[in-house]
Amino acid sequence: MPASKPVISLTDITKSYQMGDVHFPVLHGITFTVDAGEFVSVLGPSGSGKSTLMNIIGCLDVPDSGTYMLGHRTVKGLPERTMARIRNRDIGFVFQSFQLLPRISAIENVMLPLIYAKVPRAQRYARAMAELERVGLADKAGNLPRQLSGGQQQRVAIARALVTRPRILLADEPTGALDRTTGAQIMDIFQSLNKEGITVVMITHDHKVASFASRIVYILDGKLYSKEEYEALELGGEG
């Protein structure tokens, strides 16, 4: 039963937030694995805890309890600089709102993670350019983000996520700010990246978007469910 090569392995993860005196449990014992080379969607409505789950997978946050293994490394009690290094080398982030720095050009945005990886300047440029070519934006390298369409900005963000050659691409509602056609183009890119061997984990609330993945994990109120359970609960909740 256990996967042959799990890249992400979550066991009984819990997380809650404290807001003054009020205690908000967000995740109640999440257990699942993602194998190397998989394309997994985490589908859930807003407030389901999927963003918290993504933060934990992305090493932006740590669980209260449970075990998170990234590759064969346990992410627990690591100093912030090590977490930063993992985010830099092992994970590529794609956000709903692109998160490009507005005052620097597309290629400079793509080079940013390489600066933090201390890659020499000459190599930074070549590698960033290669990633922009991969997403078909080599000719827009010198453009500022505001000179690009939403879809182009998201492609720049994907290039930035890939430039340190991470094992995992972690996307949070990557099509949320895009129209359907552009969103589909982004999904095409994800699928072809996945074919090249990159593990993709995508968080979304959209069934259609989620279906681009090879496997869907359903999350509701901080728990994982099977497809049938999820659909029943979702309908029940809405009804």
């Binding site: 992305g58 932006l60 912030e80 600089r81 930063a84 290094r85 985010r87 830099n88 080398r89 982030f93 998160q99 720095l101 940013l112 993670p113 933090y116 990886a117 930035r160 340190t164």
Partner: peptide, 16 residues
């Protein structure tokens, strides 16, 4: 704030 968050997500250490 957002920029700092992004830089951190991209792997900027606190010291950086």
């Amino acid at each position: 704030t957002a920029e700092i968050g992004l830089r951190k997500a991209l792997g900027a250490r606190p010291s950086v």
